[in-house]
Lab assay of single mutants.
Amino acid sequence: MDVFMKGLSKAKEGVVAAAEKTKQGVAEAAGKTKEGVLYVGSKTKEGVVHGVATVAEKTKEQVTNVGGAVVTGVTAVAQKTVEGAGSIAAATGFVKKDQLGKNEEGAPQEGILEDMPVDPDNEAYEMPSEEGYQDYEPEA
């Protein structure tokens, strides 16, 4: 019985440690998101679009440190934060509304985080759909 109880105690310690790591990862992701939003706020009209992409990228980098179902929630929060940063930029006159959601080359930025393969159960990952990809044929 002692062996059984000791095993359960060790398992509990492992769960607590994993929860603490997840909590730490979420806190880091939130900190990076805040950094990115402050970065966007300090940019001029020309830099705002690039700044919004930076927020998304920093958040995406930190999301990889967070495991399990938390990833889905962090990704949703990050996307809403990026959308909010863009709205703030438009409201303050840093950028025109028609410039939001495009990178410096004018290509749409939507789907940055949505296409990231995420499995809350950590069982399997699927690649994003290939609808947006084109076949590449090298020139002879």
Rank of each mutant, 00 (worst) to 15 (best):
L113A: 13
G84N: 11
A17N: 08
A53F: 11
N65H: 04
A124Y: 15
V48C: 05
E20A: 15
G68R: 06
V77A: 09
D135Q: 09
Q62H: 06
F4R: 00
T22W: 15
E110H: 03
G7H: 04
E105W: 01
A76G: 05
K21Q: 05
E130Q: 11
A17V: 12
L113K: 09
A29S: 02
T72G: 12
A85M: 14
Q134Y: 05
G31C: 01
A89R: 08
A89I: 12
V82G: 03
G86T: 08
D121S: 10
A140S: 13
E130K: 12
A85F: 10
G47P: 01
E57F: 10
S42Y: 11
N103Q: 09
M5Q: 00
E131Y: 04
G36H: 15
D119T: 10
Q24I: 10
G7K: 08
E46W: 05
Q24G: 03
A29C: 11
K34I: 10
G47R: 13
A69R: 10
A91R: 05
G51Y: 10
Q24M: 15
I112M: 07
H50C: 09
A85Y: 10
G25R: 14
V52H: 01
K80E: 02
N122R: 15
K97H: 09
V118A: 09
T33K: 00
D121I: 07
K58A: 14
E13H: 02
E13N: 12
S87P: 10
A69G: 05
E20M: 10
E130G: 13
T33L: 06
V52I: 08
G51L: 07
D2L: 15
G47W: 09
V37E: 00
G86E: 10
T81K: 02
T75P: 01
D115V: 10
V40P: 00
E46Q: 06
T72S: 10
Q99F: 12
K21S: 08
E57K: 08
I88E: 02
D98I: 03
Q134E: 06
D98M: 05
D121P: 08
D121M: 08
E46R: 04
E35P: 01
E130W: 09
A27D: 01
N65Q: 09
G47I: 07
A27V: 07
V48A: 04
G51Q: 08
T75R: 05
D2G: 00
F94W: 15
V70S: 01
A76R: 10
K45V: 14
E35I: 14
H50P: 01
K10S: 05
D98A: 03
